Amino acid sequence: MSSDRRPVVFVHGLWLHADSWTPWLELFREAGYDPQAPGWPGDSPSVEENRQHPERVAGIGIDAVVDHYAQVIGALDTQPIVVGHSFGGLIAQRLLGQNLAAAAVAIDPAPIKGVIFLPPSSLRVASVALRNPANRRGTVTLTRKQFRYGFGNALPQAESDELYDRWTIGSPGRPLFEAAVANLKPSSPAKVDTGKATRGPLLLTLGGKDHTVAPAIVRTTARLYRKSPAVTELRQYPDRGHSLTIDAGWRVVADDVLAWLKARGL
C-alpha cells in the first residue's frame, strides 16, 4: 500500500473471529484506507482452528489485548484509526485514550469503568461466563440459542443461525469478570481516560435492540465523556442488535463510519 493510505485497525469482540471484519476491510480498502484486522492474542488464523484450540485464548484479559494491539500499532508508520465492536470497542477507547490512535469508533462497546447500571439483558449475556468462577481462567463458547439472544435477536432465525455457524469462536471469560468488577477497582483494566482533552475524535454507536450491550450502557458511556472538550459523538441504530457489524445491514453502519471519518478529514 502507498504511504498516503491511512491505516485502520479493526478489533473484534468476544465470540467473533477477526475474519468477520472481511467485508469492512474490502470496503475501507476501496475507500482509500489501509485496513487490517489482527486477532486477539492467542487467536488462530481461522475460525475452524480457533474452535479446535479454544485453550489458546484461556485467561487472556483486557490489558493483554490492549498491549497486543499497541504492539500492532507500534509497527505502523502512521497513527491509525481504530474501529472496535463490543469488547473491541472498549479496547479502541483504551487505545485512543493512550494517544495510540488518531480516532476511534466504538461500535456497541462493552461497558467501561464508570458505567454503573447494567440492564437485565446485558447481565443475562454476561452470565454465560460469570456464573462459573472457573471461566475467569478458561474459555467460554456460546450455544446457538445464546448467540440468538445476545447477537441475533433482531434478525430472522435463519440469518442468526448462519452467522453463528460462520463466525463464532470460543473466547476468554476473563474480560467479562474484569468488566463486572470494574467500578470496585481503582486500576481496573476497563478504565478509560474519558476526560482527556488531547485525544482524537471518538464515535460511539448503539443498537436499540442490542441485548449484549444494551442502549443504556452506551448512553452512559457517552455521558462519561462530557468533561472532555475532544470530539465525542453518538450514533443510534434503533432497530439493530449486537450483530450490526456482521449481519445483512452491516453496510449501513460501515458507510456511516466512513462518512464520519471523511467529515473529520481522516
Rank of each mutant, 00 (worst) to 15 (best):
S187T: 15
R144L: 10
A259Y: 06
T194I: 10
R136N: 13
P7T: 03
R235T: 10
P120T: 01
V11W: 10
V257K: 06
L118I: 05
V253Q: 10
K113H: 12
K209C: 07
T168A: 04
A92M: 07
A103W: 09
G13F: 07
P41V: 01
L118V: 08
Y33M: 04
G13I: 00
P215I: 01
R144Y: 05
Q36C: 13
L100V: 00
R124L: 13
E162I: 00
V83L: 07
A259L: 09
L16R: 01
R251G: 03
G200Y: 03
A180S: 12
L176D: 09
A92K: 08
R51K: 09
A180M: 09
L130C: 06
D210A: 03
V181R: 08
P80Q: 07
V253C: 11
H17L: 01
Q52A: 14
I116V: 12
D239I: 00
G42Y: 01
F10W: 05
V253P: 07
L76K: 07
L184D: 09
A158C: 04
S121W: 02
I116T: 13
A230C: 07
K196S: 11
T232E: 03
L244G: 02
S2C: 01
P201V: 00
V66I: 11
A101I: 02
P80H: 12
L261I: 04
R219A: 12
P201Y: 03
F177N: 11
D19G: 15
Y69N: 02
L27M: 13
A134G: 10
A182Q: 10
R251C: 05
L234V: 02
P120Q: 07
V181L: 08
T221R: 12
P41D: 08
K191V: 00
G152T: 05
H53F: 12
R29Q: 13
A58K: 06
P120C: 00
I73Q: 11
F147E: 03
M1V: 04
H17Y: 05
E55W: 03
L14C: 10
V105M: 05
F87I: 08
D210H: 06
A58T: 02
D256F: 07
V252D: 14
L142S: 03
A64W: 07
E26G: 10
G88K: 03
P215W: 06
G42Q: 04
L244C: 04
Q98A: 13
P111V: 01
A254E: 10
S20Y: 03
S171Q: 08
K209N: 11
M1P: 14
P133H: 14
G88N: 06
A190S: 14
P80C: 06
D43P: 01
G39T: 03
K196F: 09
D43M: 08
P45I: 00
L176C: 05
D34P: 06
D108S: 12
Y225N: 09
E162N: 07
A154L: 05
R240I: 00
A248T: 12
S122C: 06
G97Y: 05
M1T: 09
L234P: 15
I73M: 05
L244F: 11
K262E: 15
V125A: 15
E178L: 04
W24G: 02
P238H: 07
N135E: 14
T212S: 14
L27P: 11
S44L: 13
